[in-house]
Computed example of a mutant assay.
Amino acid sequence: MKAIIGAIIVALLPVVAAGGERPVAPNGIPIMEGYRNWQVIAPSYREDKGHIRVIFGNDIAVKASRNGTLPFPDGTVLAKVAWTAAKHPKFPVATVPDRFVQVEFMVKDAKKYGATGGWGFARFVGDSLTPYGKDPGFVQECFGCHTPVKGNDYVFTGFAPVP
């Protein structure tokens, strides 16, 4: 009987995961609902990784980016989605997104994340959206990469110019 109940529970796990809890980073930041519906702030390309990236912002991030507001206000959330790059099969001079790699978030809360410039960081990797990092200390890796842009409140990306 225990084996049957165990088999039922294991069979139901994908259903619970598919419609249930959002993955959460080791520091407590979950995947933000609806981030793919946020406005695009800018695309980018990371040569060392061969990744095409699109940076989305919630309404607070978009307003601050447009107005050049620094530091970004609390409540700002940026989402960076990354894919491997591939040549378009019908138009090989074009590079297009290929395989999904990860989604990363930056969440501004100057008090809560004071040790990392006021920003909380989270990364979810692969199609399974596996939270990155073994413990909350993983954010030091993220923060370390962002220190060269301290003068821009630790944010690399600005609003892409469009006439």
Rank of each mutant, 00 (worst) to 15 (best):
A3N: 12
A3S: 12
A3M: 03
I4S: 05
I5K: 08
G6F: 07
G6R: 10
A7W: 07
I8M: 11
I9V: 15
I9F: 10
V10C: 07
V10Y: 04
A11E: 00
L12Y: 05
L13P: 11
V16L: 12
A17N: 13
G19N: 11
R22Q: 09
R22E: 10
V24H: 02
V24T: 04
A25I: 06
P26W: 06
P26E: 02
G28N: 06
G28R: 01
P30I: 03
I31R: 09
E33K: 15
E33Y: 02
G34T: 11
G34E: 08
Y35V: 02
R36N: 08
N37I: 09
W38T: 03
W38L: 01
Q39W: 04
Q39G: 08
V40P: 00
A42Q: 02
P43M: 11
S44F: 11
S44W: 08
S44H: 02
R46S: 07
R46T: 07
E47T: 13
D48F: 15
G50Q: 02
G50D: 03
H51I: 02
I52N: 09
R53C: 15
R53D: 04
V54I: 15
V54C: 14
I55N: 14
G57V: 07
N58Y: 03
N58L: 07
D59S: 15
D59K: 12
A61P: 00
A64P: 05
A64K: 04
A64N: 04
R66M: 15
G68E: 07
T69A: 10
L70W: 03
L70T: 06
L70V: 03
P71H: 04
P71D: 04
P71M: 01
F72A: 10
F72C: 01
G75E: 02
G75S: 08
G75C: 11
G75W: 09
T76G: 08
T76N: 01
V81D: 12
A82N: 06
A86D: 11
K87T: 10
P92S: 13
P92G: 13
V93P: 12
A94C: 10
T95E: 06
T95R: 12
V96C: 08
Q102T: 11
E104R: 15
F105K: 05
F105Y: 12
V107Y: 09
K108M: 14
K108L: 08
A110G: 12
Y113A: 02
G114T: 11
G114K: 15
G114I: 13
G114E: 14
A115M: 13
T116F: 14
G118Y: 03
G118H: 04
W119K: 07
G120Y: 05
F121I: 05
F121D: 00
F121A: 06
A122L: 00
V125Q: 04
G126E: 02
D127M: 11
D127T: 10
T130S: 04
P131Q: 03
D135G: 05
P136Q: 06
G137S: 10
F138R: 05
V139D: 08
V139W: 03
Q140R: 14
C142W: 11
G144P: 03
G144Y: 00
G144S: 05
G144R: 02
C145Q: 01
H146I: 05
T147A: 03
P148D: 01
V149S: 13
N152K: 08
D153L: 12
D153C: 09
Y154D: 01
V155H: 09
V155I: 12
F156G: 09
A160N: 10
A160W: 13
P161Y: 01
V162A: 15
V162S: 12
P163D: 12
